[in-house]
């Protein structure tokens, strides 16, 4: 096998893993810090994608459309937390059911608002060459974006008052309340941040994955499996799981067929969950 092929496989697999991680981080934050499985996560990504699309259509440059999408999804997330999630604390299955239904509502609202086909914004037509192989720049850029998102969440959780309160609320809920942390307000914030991260994913991946009402489905399954495999240490766990599962599947697909790549993803997930029922990070001593 030629060296240039190996190099492109490595780069594009890293990019695949990063895309998976970008789409998963919001879910991981909400699950890790609130214990809530948000089955509408894919639809929040969709909302982010349509927000960014709408922003570009009214003339905003793409770089400004991204923060617009983040703010929109954060507001929607906060409202959803106040109206629905808050009533269902500690009822894992009820929350799953409620958010699943919410996802269906979002999906149908998107169809009513935007119809079934909307013009995409296209991918920047930049490419570079590695030996004989040509690679599109934008997907490779996602490696950098994923790294920045990871660093941002890490700093948010470790170096801000909100982050400390959020971690206290999930690790020692009674103690946190006893010392005066308003855990419900912290939770609203956490859910809004999780939604905002989903919105960011939808917006920044828009050139790669065009906005369609049902696009949430593409991310839902693999995103959830990644978070479940990651386990309680949200950030490091998710990054590692995305790298192993997403990157591994991409490498497999490059050398064999795309179907085998998918089989790899699901098979390795099954094996990991069999070996580590609570996720790979269950016994780690890290907290993030």
């Amino acid at each position: 096998m030629e060296l240039d092929f190996l190099a492109t496989v490595l780069l594009s697999s890293l990019s695949s893993a990063s895309i998976l991680l970008i789409a998963t981080l919001g879910l991981a934050v909400v699950y890790g810090l609130m214990g809530v499985i948000n089955l509408a996560h894919g639809e929040f990504i969709m909302v982010g994608a349509y927000s960014a699309l709408t922003a570009t259509q009214i003339g905003l440059p793409f770089l400004l459309a991204i923060p617009f999408a983040v703010v929109t999804t954060m507001i929607i997330g906060a409202v959803v937390e106040l109206l629905i999630i808050r009533k269902l604390y500690g009822r894992l299955f009820d929350t799953m059911l409620a958010t699943w239904g919410l996802g269906m509502v979002f999906n149908q609202v998107a169809i009513l608002l935007f119809g079934t086909v909307s013009p995409g914004i296209g991918m920047p037509q930049w490419s570079f060459k590695v030996g004989d192989y040509s690679l599109a720049v934008y997907p490779i850029l996602m490696i950098f974006v994923a790294a920045v998102m990871l660093a941002f969440i890490y700093l948010l959780m470790t170096h801000t008052v909100y982050g400390m309160k959020a971690r206290a609320s999930i690790q020692q809920p009674q103690m946190a309340q006893a010392i005066g942390i308003d855990s419900s307000r912290v939770n609203t914030m956490t859910f809004a941040i999780g939604s905002g991260l989903a919105g960011l994913a939808g917006a920044i991946l828009l050139p790669i994955i065009p906005a369609t009402p049902s696009m949430g489905l593409f991310f839902a399954v693999k995103g959830f499996l990644t978070v479940v495999v990651a386990g309680p240490v949200t950030l490091t766990g998710s990054a590692l799981a995305a790298l192993g599962l997403g990157g591994g599947a991409s490498v497999t697909a490059s050398f064999m067929t795309s179907v085998v790549g998918d089989v790899f993803f699901f098979l390795v997930t099954a094996i990991l969950l069999w070996l580590y029922p609570m996720g790979i990070s269950a016994k780690w001593r890290r907290k993030l």
Binding site: S12, A136, L217, S254
Partner: peptide
Amino acid sequence: EDYLPLSMTDYAPTIQKIQA
């Protein structure tokens, strides 16, 4: 030839194989 799962969004491997 490459046959892809229906829910595929990651086309990078296919694009490399096409170039190869």
